[in-house]
Design a binder for these strands. Sequence first.
DNA 1: TCGTTTTGTGAAACACGGCTAACTTTTAGG
DNA 2: CCTAAAAGTTAGCCGTGTTTCACAAAACGA
Lengths: 129, 129
Amino acid sequence: MALRESGEDYLESIYVLSERQGIVRSIDVAEYLGVTKASVSKAMATLESNGYVEMGKRDVHLTERGLEVARQMWERHCFFVGLLEDAGVSAEVASQEGCHMEHCLSEESFEKLRAMLGRDGASAPIMTD
Amino acid sequence: MALRESGEDYLESIYVLSERQGIVRSIDVAEYLGVTKASVSKAMATLESNGYVEMGKRDVHLTERGLEVARQMWERHCFFVGLLEDAGVSAEVASQEGCHMEHCLSEESFEKLRAMLGRDGASAPIMTD
DNA sequence: TCGTTTTGTGAAACACGGCTAACTTTTAGG
DNA sequence: CCTAAAAGTTAGCCGTGTTTCACAAAACGA
């Protein structure tokens, strides 16, 4: 089953949270994304059955496969947010809107766009907020 | 009721088709977007009840309000497709992916991005295919 | 004009991704 | 330990936007 936009968002948030705090629980993901824990529970079940995450007793972590997607999403997120901020968009709006742009492109197109716009691939530091 | 991504796509396609061929019927929109005519029928009912389109006996046309949205979407479409093509993405892929990007930004952010990237607002000619 | 083809609509179903509410399980303070 | 709070799950619902299938209405060619 192909990953949807929402699935990519969940993976990305697990990645960001694990960088921030190590262990990631469902409730952390729920708070980060602003959805209910029931929604996270459902999403995790699907992501696990497709091999993107593994659920421990009280934590969730990315598999190799999930990590790859998550890193890629985070990289794009940083790219688009940076681009919008450079254009004069506020950090808050840039973050919101970048969240959607990051799902629009294929890997190949994204790389070409990034190459043309000459922005390096450096990820922004992952803030505690 | 706010316009969703799919609603914007319908409006844009009506706009493009009307430039191409004058009269636009539901079936034309269905073929253009690759959805069934039942889907178009439903979508048109919603768009009409919200004042974006008017349905004649055998045609659909945009209201002033719908036209405004449609033009804006087409402008964005052209912007993103042009950007991707300049980056080396094939016309076909650029068109597909641009279709999604055009819905991600607020009016304000889009204008800022366009200003920064220094692309003019000229729309591409509307091809017959 | 008549019958066929094209176009449009309506009903029912489905997938997705949220939600609430009720429940279970785990954790942790006293 | 026991209990209360926190975290997780399950079931059922909703809105959106599709689909298929059956049918109605219009257009059109012979």
